[in-house]
Computed example of a mutant assay.
Amino acid sequence: MNGLNLGPGHGAEVAANLAILLYAQRGGQTVYGTVHPISNDDDRPTIGAGRPIDRAALIGCLNELAQNAAPRAEFLPETVLAVSQSAVIWWCRPGLRRVFFECRELGKRTAIVPHPGLVFYAASRGFSVFALQEDSRPTPESTLHEPPYFNTWDFGKICIGSAHVPKRIDIESIAGWECGFFESAFTHPNHGGKRVNHPKSEFAFWKAMLDGEYPGEFPKDLLIPMNATLADLIRGKLGD
């Protein structure tokens, strides 16, 4: 093949300049790969000698392809705050949701309780959640707060454990990520910083929540602010 025209909007005709060969055991998974330069002398492509492909080169090639791929128009719901090739950030309105607990201190309990506004971050490097003071859609300047939940680490990271979460990270999977968080049992507070500003403990706070002592809305005065904003999260500066 001498060249390829990618159609309107893609500029001039392109030609092959690199080939990747993948090797697999018979009936098995890919175990080895080589990359080969392609010469186009006399308009006849020729695959040259190969060299072992490394992880960095393969990721670089895939990133270039992703950047040059034709964009697909997609409707963005109001709750979506930011989207990239490897992450989705969205807002969850404050309201009533059921929670599940299964731990020695609180027993096996479930109840519908109020939650603050939340920001979720699903990415190839993990799943995180943050609390908000405001009830409306956050802005880049909105301060993030510690998630007042068990099973979370510093910087909002969620311990997924046995939770069932989607394999995909895209707008269509948002509901699945939320279900994976809310429908899993909270089992323990993780090590790290304080998650909620209760005078006794996180156990005392959640016992009060489960007993219906905060029936109207989440007690936002107990949220602990982080030294970070939504803009920091979007720019990937959180936890650096």
Rank of each mutant, 00 (worst) to 15 (best):
F155C: 11
P114N: 09
N190G: 04
Q133D: 10
K194P: 06
C159K: 01
F127W: 08
T110A: 13
H198L: 10
F127G: 00
S162M: 08
G180R: 05
W153K: 12
E172N: 10
S184V: 09
P138N: 13
R98Y: 12
C159R: 05
P147M: 12
P114V: 09
W177Y: 15
L118T: 09
I158N: 06
R168D: 14
V196T: 07
A122V: 07
H164Q: 13
S173I: 00
C179I: 04
L106A: 08
L144Q: 01
D170S: 13
E134P: 08
T152Q: 03
D135Q: 09
R104W: 04
E183V: 06
G161E: 05
D135R: 10
A122W: 05
L144C: 01
A175D: 15
F150N: 05
E172C: 03
V113Q: 14
G176W: 04
T143D: 00
Q133K: 14
F186Y: 02
L118D: 09
P189S: 00
R98T: 15
D170H: 13
A122M: 05
E102R: 10
P148A: 12
C179V: 01
A122N: 02
D154K: 01
I158R: 06
G161Y: 01
D170L: 08
F127D: 02
D170I: 10
S142G: 04
F181R: 01
P148T: 10
Y149H: 14
N151M: 07
D170R: 10
I169Q: 11
E183P: 02
L106M: 09
G117I: 08
G193I: 03
T152V: 15
T139F: 11
Q133V: 07
G126E: 07
V119Y: 14
I174M: 15
K108H: 13
F186T: 00
N151V: 08
T152P: 06
V129I: 15
A123G: 08
F150W: 06
G107S: 08
C179F: 01
P147T: 05
F155P: 01
S124P: 02
K108W: 07
P199C: 12
P148E: 12
S184G: 11
E172A: 15
A163D: 02
P147D: 03
E102Q: 15
P140Y: 07
R109D: 04
D170K: 12
A175R: 13
R137N: 04
G107K: 07
I112D: 12
F155K: 03
W177L: 09
W177D: 10
I171T: 09
I112N: 03
G156E: 02
V196G: 07
F186W: 07
W177E: 07
F130H: 09
E146L: 05
P147C: 09
E172F: 03
A185D: 09
P147A: 15
H188V: 12
L118K: 08
L118A: 09
L144H: 01
A123K: 01
R137I: 14
S124I: 12
D135N: 15
I174F: 05
A175T: 13
N197S: 13
C103H: 06
K108P: 01
C179L: 08
T110Q: 14
A185L: 02
L132S: 04
